[in-house]
Design a binder for these strands. Structure first.
Lengths: 189, 189
DNA sequence: AATGATTGTTGAACAGTGGTCAATAAGGAG
DNA sequence: CTCCTTATTGACCACTGTTCAACAATCATT
């Protein structure tokens, strides 16, 4: 039974997440095993369970980062100096771009049914959605109903989900995204 | 080594699919094992592999049935005597109802990323979508663009996907579905 | 009726999974 | 130089999808 490593290479949450992120982005949630991650790091799989209780917890830790990322992207767009209508368009496109650029993370954020993972997801989506909804509401001169904003979200979600499934990058569907957003804006304003 | 069963109880594709359907509807694709299905049937799991090459093939066989079901639902609505506008509404609502009533099947039809399953899926979705698109096109007096119809589909897909994730039945979101459909129709016509 | 070929079922085996846990050693504190 | 906490290991468990040699039941042919 070989012992633990010396302190300069002690395993950390960060290290695990970094390794997991890479594998995860390449293969998706379902196709990354704890043993793979451990191997990548040069540790035994048991070690990971010292730092994370679960596969689910490990992946959700990464997801939290990405909800923040989404919030930032949105906030950035809001701070730009653009015509209101154009800004609204950018917000919706920004959501799609985020979803298709971080497909694997979008998957856990909004797609995974796995109860174990979902147990960790509570505030994340709600908070992000609230920021999204508020932005859209402002950019519509407060003329849009909450239900309509919700419909917009669901419709963007549909776009991302569909093209995520066929593993397409954002660039490849930029034009379609634009057209979709225009379609949605037509009934929003 | 116990031998095979006598002919009155010989295993068939139908029998396997029936058992699989039940388990699958209850637990979703990822949480049904071949051994479970075999147990349900009173056979060893190896026997299933005589009739289906794969778990993926088994489940896709069921999915094909459900694409036909979706087509029928659509065709039924089209045959009803309704005002055009109302009929269009029913088509869109019909899609959502189908998706939320057969969540597990919708999952494989439109959601699963698994390459193995996707290898079997080729014509199914395309054919169904074409029928859907044609219907919508007709009911709009041929005034809607193909891109808009595609956007409608993606938006319905988003609705189903979202509420599927939270395992809600159609009845519980009927009103929301209606509101979503109205939102979409507003920019379609 | 006997023989042979085909068809269908079994269960052991394989490589993989997530997760647990006793054993063990490294490093710090006294 | 002890004691204690902390981190790591790897055997182990129960499970997964899949393969396949062994074998029996059935059908076809002589």
């Amino acid at each position: 039974m070989s012992p633990r490593k010396s302190v300069q290479q002690e395993l950390t949450r960060e290290m695990i997440m970094d390794a997991a992120r890479d594998l995860f982005v390449q293969n998706g949630y379902g196709h990354v095993s704890m043993r793979q991650i451990a191997k990548e790091l040069g540790y035994s799989h048991g070690a990971i369970y010292y730092h994370f209780t679960n596969k689910a917890e490990l992946f959700y830790a990464m997801v939290q980062e990405h909800f923040h990322m989404l919030d930032h992207i949105l906030a950035n767009i809001m701070e730009q100096e653009l015509e209101q209508h154009e800004k609204l368009k950018q917000v919706l496109l920004g959501f799609i771009e985020f979803g298709l650029t971080h497909q694997s993370h979008y998957e856990i954020m909004f797609l995974i049914k796995d109860e174990e993972v979902r147990n960790f997801i509570n505030e994340g989506p709600n908070k992000s959605y609230e920021a999204f909804a508020k932005s859209v509401y402002m950019l519509c001169d407060k003329k849009a109903s909450l239900q309509d904003i919700w419909s917009v979200f669901l419709s963007l979600h549909g776009f991302v989900t569909h093209y995520s499934r066929h593993v397409v990058g954002y660039d490849e569907v930029k034009d379609l995204a634009r057209s979709h957003v225009n379609f949605l804006l037509r009934s929003l304003i």
